[in-house]
Amino acid sequence: MSKYKAVIFDLDGTLLYTLEDLKNSANYALSKHGIDTCSLHEIQYRVGNGVQKLMERCIPGGLDNPEFETIFSDFKQHYKLHCNDNSGPYDGIPEVLQKLKEHGYKLAIVSNKFMDATKELAELYFKDTIDVAIGETKDIKKKPAPDTVIEAMRILGVVADECIYVGDSDVDINTAKNSGMPCISVAWGFRTRQEQIEAGGTIFAEKPSDIFDIVDNKD
């Protein structure tokens, strides 16, 4: 019997490909205010710490820009309407979630994406498999702080020793470490394997089905 009872997933870059919609919403807000837009590659390396941090990295001057709050608001309004235009699960993800669910594992999403979008995407794509979806709010520290993971564990009724985390970045590796659980780093996300190794990653899934094999290992 596996020692794990629950699997906690990052969302963007782990379960869902979301870069195009993040880029489009960021560029909508930037261009509306006469600011140069960002390439997909630039967006890829600015995500991971929540959408406010993404926009801080895209807007000249960041939080010191007097228009920051207006531009950020425009981004959020656009993204709320268009967060699913080009997004979707990576191939093999729905199947591995279903298999984990069928084998009795509790499943959660913990994301730095704001709460409304996290819950909307979780409901749209994973309503039959994901038990809990938690995004960014003003009331709880975002990853890599352990607070959102702790909240997910509380709702699921599990402790850290019974959980394993799955993500695609240094933020996720540090989140798992801060939460007292191991991290499966995925090969298909927004950071390379080498970048994840340099961040301390030691367990790797080359394809989604590997997640089940790692979690369900009886050793």
Score class of each variant (00 low, 15 high):
26 A>Y: 03
84 N>W: 09
48 G>I: 07
38 C>D: 13
131 D>E: 08
45 Y>C: 04
32 K>W: 00
47 V>L: 08
208 P>M: 04
109 I>E: 08
66 P>G: 10
94 P>W: 12
140 I>L: 14
177 K>Y: 13
191 R>A: 01
117 A>P: 01
104 G>F: 13
200 G>Q: 09
81 L>C: 14
47 V>W: 10
159 V>K: 15
50 G>Y: 12
179 S>G: 07
209 S>C: 12
56 E>H: 03
7 V>G: 01
205 A>D: 09
198 E>S: 10
193 R>M: 14
136 E>H: 15
183 C>V: 09
189 G>P: 08
25 S>I: 04
3 K>E: 14
187 A>I: 07
42 E>R: 10
194 Q>R: 12
126 F>L: 00
152 A>Y: 03
169 S>K: 03
186 V>I: 05
200 G>H: 07
13 G>C: 06
219 D>K: 11
67 E>Q: 15
143 K>A: 04
38 C>P: 00
111 S>G: 07
210 D>K: 06
215 V>D: 05
54 L>S: 06
192 T>R: 04
213 D>C: 08
195 E>H: 09
145 A>I: 02
75 F>W: 04
176 A>C: 06
44 Q>R: 15
132 V>W: 06
178 N>K: 05
160 A>N: 10
156 L>P: 07
16 L>G: 03
217 N>H: 11
171 V>Q: 10
34 G>L: 08
130 I>E: 04
131 D>P: 00
77 Q>Y: 15
4 Y>K: 01
119 K>C: 11
12 D>I: 09
183 C>Y: 04
5 K>Q: 15
175 T>S: 13
49 N>Q: 14
196 Q>W: 02
81 L>E: 15
159 V>I: 14
48 G>M: 06
27 N>F: 06
168 D>M: 02
15 L>T: 07
12 D>T: 12
144 P>E: 09
88 G>N: 13
213 D>E: 15
206 E>N: 13
117 A>Y: 12
97 L>I: 11
218 K>T: 13
25 S>K: 05
83 C>Y: 15
155 I>P: 01
30 L>V: 05
144 P>N: 02
140 I>T: 15
68 F>M: 05
134 I>G: 00
16 L>R: 01
178 N>L: 07
179 S>W: 08
118 T>N: 11
114 F>D: 15
46 R>H: 12
95 E>C: 07
168 D>G: 05
23 K>I: 00
1 M>C: 10
167 G>K: 04
105 Y>C: 03
57 R>T: 04
162 E>V: 03
52 Q>A: 14
210 D>S: 06
2 S>W: 10
9 F>T: 03
185 S>E: 03
207 K>H: 12
180 G>Y: 10
13 G>Q: 07
188 W>E: 09
54 L>Q: 06
47 V>M: 05
22 L>R: 10
4 Y>R: 01
156 L>I: 04
24 N>P: 01
110 V>C: 12
97 L>Q: 08
19 L>C: 02
81 L>R: 13
92 G>H: 08
134 I>C: 00
42 E>P: 06
32 K>P: 00
32 K>D: 03
110 V>T: 14
23 K>A: 12
